[in-house]
Write a protein that binds this DNA or RNA. Structure first.
Lengths: 214, 214
DNA sequence: CTTATACCCGACTATTCATTCTGTCAAATA
DNA sequence: TATTTGACAGAATGAATAGTCGGGTATAAG
């Protein structure tokens, strides 16, 4: 009872999480207040206090010093920033990892890694339908398998036997939900019985570096 | 000539990078000023301006809105936050990744991933010499192969034929450099000809989540 | 020689930002 | 019913933070 999170507290936690994900730093009270849709920052103060008490969030004394704690990630169903990499190694014996030079042999005292989790994988994307989201023909993307999706996220969708990466949009007027290509050349894709969202595209490989998808 | 970074600019860039890594949010001008070892924040203003011009850094108008850009990571020789995961999949065919349920078969239009880079690997740690750094007996840690190291980083070191994970300390008084176990039960380890630093411990697996090592 | 650039000092200003206080209201709880 | 809890309003306050102005010095470039 006491440890459970309320819907409103979860709202704020997600607002903070999403803000950090997209901007790279935490929001101000004012920004949180606006996203919550209230006019007094007292709401933010109260909710933050609860999130702190319940160990979902850590807050420093300075400006914009917010850190989502592991418990917070768990309740949101999101992996911490550095988390998903474990998944990509799932089922992959460490011997398969090529280490350069003197690391051909592993140091003694260490053993093989095991399966960590199976909710993330990497795919190569073909086509130009997402160029405005920074995903170009041939790029590698990192996909996290999920159940819940939020409007604006780039998702991997299954349409019948075909698979595609598009931006997922959910709005309060028709057509309510659809898939939006990030290229004006292409049309929106409506949902049918055959449309199924599989995962969220977290990251894209650019010039040898993984970058966030927005 | 014009695009090159100066030592002082690189100092600040690293200060910002390290701060975000360890704290989770960007520093204030005051904190940067202090770390730079100067008494006027005008220095910070000037250096930040240069880092912005050279596209190593992005800066918003609000408080503490700093983001290290890909060019910045490159010049520091650091992977972006989400980067290293690619490495763990190096040489690991995507078929080896076990996907649950209907993802036993991969969607058409996607191919195997190739080797991405070989500078990161995962090891299991035995012993209690780093418990105060949050690394317990049997934990998995993520190691990034590096050449340069900074005082305070947790490193994987090779001591003769043996390998060990300890905190690397470099100070301006004897013994200058040594390895520090994070457990009072153990003694510091001096450097010898046989001591060699191999990589930096970036992350540790805790309750199913990867967490930063401090 | 002259100019520009990198780096820094010191003080000052403007404003963002967090905090605090007093209260309201509805829903949950005892 | 009485009490507590969650959520929010409105306003006032003060500290934290960024930004500005006017210099200085040393080094490199033209």
């Amino acid at each position: 009872m006491k440890k459970q999170i309320t819907p409103r507290q979860k709202d704020l936690l997600r607002i903070i999480y999403n803000f950090i994900q997209s901007d790279g730093f935490p929001p101000t009270f004012e920004q949180m207040r606006e996203k919550l849709g209230v006019v007094s920052n007292q709401s933010v103060v109260d909710l933050l206090e609860k999130l702190k008490q319940k160990r979902f969030l850590k807050k420093g004394t300075g400006a914009r010093e917010l850190v989502v704690l592991p418990l917070g990630y768990q309740i949101l169903g999101e992996p911490p920033l550095a988390a998903f990499l474990g998944a990509t190694a799932a089922g992959c014996p460490i011997e398969a990892v090529e280490i350069s030079g003197e690391w051909q042999t592993l140091p003694s005292g260490f053993e093989k890694i095991e399966k960590l989790n199976d909710e993330v994988f990497i795919l190569r994307i073909y086509g130009d339908s997402m160029i405005n989201a920074g995903i170009d023909d041939g790029d590698l993307v990192l996909v996290q398998v999920k159940e819940e999706f939020y409007s604006g996220e780039v998702v991997l969708a299954k349409v019948g036997d075909d698979s595609t990466v598009k931006r997922f949009i959910s709005q309060d007027k028709p057509p309510y939900i659809f898939l939006k290509p990030e290229n004006p050349k292409y049309q929106h894709i409506s949902f049918t019985d055959e449309t199924k969202l599989v995962g969220k595209v977290i990251s894209v490989l650019k010039n040898g570096y993984w970058q966030q998808v927005k």
